[in-house]
Design a protein around this nucleic acid. Sequence first.
DNA 1: AGATCGGCCTGGACGC
DNA 2: TGCGTCCAGGCCGATC
Length: 273
Amino acid sequence: MPELPEVESVLRQLRPRVRDRWIVRVTADAQTRFGGLDDAAGKRIIDLRRRGKYLLAPLEAPGERRPSRELVLHLGMTGALRLRGEDGWVPDSYVRASFVLDDGVLDFRDVRRFGRLTVVTQGDYKHIATLANLGPEPLSPQFTSEGFHRALQRSRQSVKSQLLSQRPVAGVGNIYADEALWQARVDPRARRLSRQRSDRLWAALREVLAEAVEREGTTFRDYQMVNGESGRHASFLQVYGKAGVPCPRCATPLRRVVVGGRGSTLCPRCQRW
DNA sequence: AGATCGGCCTGGACGC
DNA sequence: TGCGTCCAGGCCGATC
């Protein structure tokens, strides 16, 4: 369930801790979602960045002038990164991979094994389709209302499915999609948005995500930061997971529908096609 | 080629 | 208490 705000919070805690550290060796479960991890050993973590829900770490071998490889990490639904022995973290049976660094051990814990860990040639995402086709960062100047409207027009999927596809904009998952659609008063099943509705959704996405980043994300079940703490945004959610509860805007009971195979909570009165 | 749907994976909630 | 069933969901690959 980590979406942009949650991954951003992990990034902010982890970046200063792993930047410029050497990876001594990597141990990992035999999992199809893990690949090329042997390539990480003996290299230095030049930086840690975020694109959408992905964490990216350029890796440089001794003597290289620029990073040749890149670690791509996706937390999936239940992934967490913890530093061994810090903030009370003791490894348990859900640790799927460990990075032995020159000054400590970084554990990747992932109950449901939806997370992904891959080492690729720097910048080469052709085997990671979602990352290769990732839309702009919602809180960057590259995310414009014009561009968003144009991107939505390229597909006839429901707007909810489009948001979850990561193509029109990066980093939105089920929680913030439902929140932004409610705030913009747009029905998740709508397939063609007027420019006006598209603009409302554009603004709502930016607002909802920025607020959640400020509160270090939403902890519903499993999400936790590097220091083990929860995000503070859960109690500020307006609609996600609140079917049956009165709409905060019009008091009509919120309803759960399935859109593109995903549960969605909406207000049947406020949110229009 | 684009849309849609099922599978992956596990724990927790729920019903009987 | 215990067992079975369903749900959560990001992403991917198979199929329509």
